[in-house]
Design a protein around this nucleic acid. Structure first.
Length: 467
RNA sequence: GGUCCCUUCGUCUAGUGGCCUAGGACGCUGCCCUUUCACGGCGGAAACACGGGUUCGAGUCCCGUAGGGAUCACCA
């Protein structure tokens, strides 16, 4: 029987959920869901100075928006400090760790000096002098790293990676104020939470080698590692906060659908042959770590737009409406009435045909709201000059007489009008479109008029003729 | 600087020694469709970083060079 897969996402709450974190979370979530396992969430808030409640909120909201649900409650790492301390004490007792009486300032000085000389700094000032421990002096606890040999991990993404133990420093696992450091806390928490697969950014690859000795000291099983490459900005530079990195809520505001984000982020660094459109259900079916790429990738808005437009087209009018209604109401300046809701709902699918992002939708949808008289774009105004106005004047009564207000009959009426007047169809259609839409982008004209309704159509035409 | 990782079209990628005169997608672009804008259809330009090996044969394996990235805290 295969072991149950348990993954986790462990962000530190020092800012929003950025795009790289979102992808890491997605991969962890997918791995768990694909294997019928568990996906846990742990907030790494042991750094009290930098952690904020706002950031925790932002991260949780980001996860929810992305549709990444976690099993059980989100765990606060800080709440587990007692347990971390207990483990540190145990390591001290077993001789796998020792007390360090150097102050932070002193340590920094020694480190800088060592680096200036080009020598490695291992922080092992007190490693061999435990018998000289001063009384009443605060101390931190450092791990006693092995100095001989090496160890290797079989990373599920990076392959076999080996590091010499001599490269490792005696890092601090418990600060002099009694709080645990990250290196200790991750190991203890991952173990206690039963995490089997650690999937995280490859900026942690080196950390794996510093964490493994802790597992060994405690005689715990070492999890399977998968270090995924980082995401860079469109310019190839690291995606940092000052470099255009946005929280996922930024993408929500730009008008991207969560499903599109999931698809795009999944495909950025992972592949399943030539598949491009991968709905989440398929992703769960197909996801494996071995198909994760090894090289960093760049974020590309053009492709995200493409994916997003695909998913928008998949939705029907009433599914689309909630995404646009409030922005639309803001734009037209009033709450939509029942007629408007009906018109907009009908129009949305064809609007989605030519939209990339959600805001493109309410731009076009506003045309189906009652906002007479319409303001005309320059282009529309230009088309509504000269003899097109009297032409519209004669067309209006014709449309008024259409008894069955549907696209086919409307089109037939316009066509026979054009024939009678010996005008090219375009010469009639274009001005009507301009008059009725005010120059806004819209789909098939007859269909647009049908949705708008006879009364509103005629009224808009009259507005132009009267002007 | 030490250590570690990475390197196929502009971008995301397929490719696991012969199926590759390197495939798909986005973007760009020609044509067609068309009442606008789109969508769609059919085409096009566009890549194995470089140099050595190994092999009958290398994008695929090995070594080196170059470039990019990560990391070296009492941050996570």
């Amino acid at each position: 029987m295969p072991e149950t897969v348990v993954t986790r996402f462990a962000p530190s709450p020092t800012g929003f959920l950025h795009i790289g974190g979102a992808r890491t979370a997605l991969y962890n979530w997918l791995l768990a869901r694909a294997n019928n396992g568990k996906f846990l969430l742990r907030i790494e808030d042991t750094d009290r100075k930098r952690s904020t409640d706002e950031a925790i909120e932002a991260i949780l909201n980001g996860m929810k928006w992305m549709g990444l649900d976690w099993d059980g409650d989100a765990i606060s790492q800080f709440d587990r400090a007692d347990r971390h301390r207990e483990v540190a004490e145990a390591m001290l007792a077993s001789g796998h760790a020792y007390k360090c009486f150097s102050s932070p300032e002193e340590t920094a000085e020694l480190r800088d000096a060592a680096r200036a000389e080009g020598k490695p700094f291992r922080g092992d000032m007190w490693r061999e002098k435990q018998d000289q421990a001063p009384a009443n002096t605060p101390y931190s606890i450092r791990i006693k790293m092995p100095r001989e040999g090496s160890h290797a991990i079989d990373d599920q993404v990076q392959g076999r990676v080996e590091v010499q133990n001599a490269e490792l420093d005696d890092m601090i696992i418990m600060r002099s104020d009694g709080t645990p450091t990250y290196m200790l806390a991750v190991v203890v928490d991952d173990h206690d939470m039963g995490v089997t697969h650690v999937v995280r950014g490859d900026d942690h690859l080196n950390n794996a080698f510093r964490q493994i000795p802790i597992y060994k000291a405690l005689e715990w099983d070492i999890p399977t590692y998968a270090h995924i490459p980082l995401i860079h900005g469109p310019d190839g530079k690291k995606l940092s906060k000052r470099h255009g990195a946005l929280g996922v809520e930024g993408y929500e505001e730009m008008g991207f659908l969560p499903e599109a984000m999931r698809n795009y982020l999944l495909r950025l660094g992972w592949s399943h042959g030539d598949e491009e459109i991968i709905p989440t259900a398929k992703a769960i079916e197909w996801f494996t770590l071995e198909n994760v790429g090894k090289s960093p990738s760049r974020f590309d808005f053009d492709k995200l737009d493409f994916v997003n437009s695909y998913y928008m087209k998949e939705l029907n009018g009433s599914e689309l409406l909630p995404y646009v209604q409030s922005d639309l109401e803001e734009q037209v300046g009033h709450a939509l009435d029942a007629t408007e809701v009906e018109r907009v709902t009908k129009a949305l699918p064809s609007l989605a045909e030519r939209a990339k992002r959600l805001p493109d939708l309410h731009e076009g949808a506003s045309l189906f709201c009652n906002t007479r008289p319409l303001s005309l774009t320059d282009k529309a105004a230009k088309q509504l000059s000269g003899d097109t106005v009297p032409m519209l004047g004669s067309l209006t009564p014709v449309l008024e007489k259409v008894s069955q207000w549907n696209a086919d009959d409307i089109k037939a009426a316009i066509v026979s009008f054009a024939e009678a007047e010996e005008l090219k169809l375009g010469k009639v259609m274009q001005p009507v479109r301009a008059a009725v839409t005010g120059g806004k982008q819209s789909g098939d004209l007859a269909e647009t008029l049908e949705i708008l309704g006879q009364e509103e159509t005629v009224a808009r035409l009259r507005d132009v003729v009267a002007a």
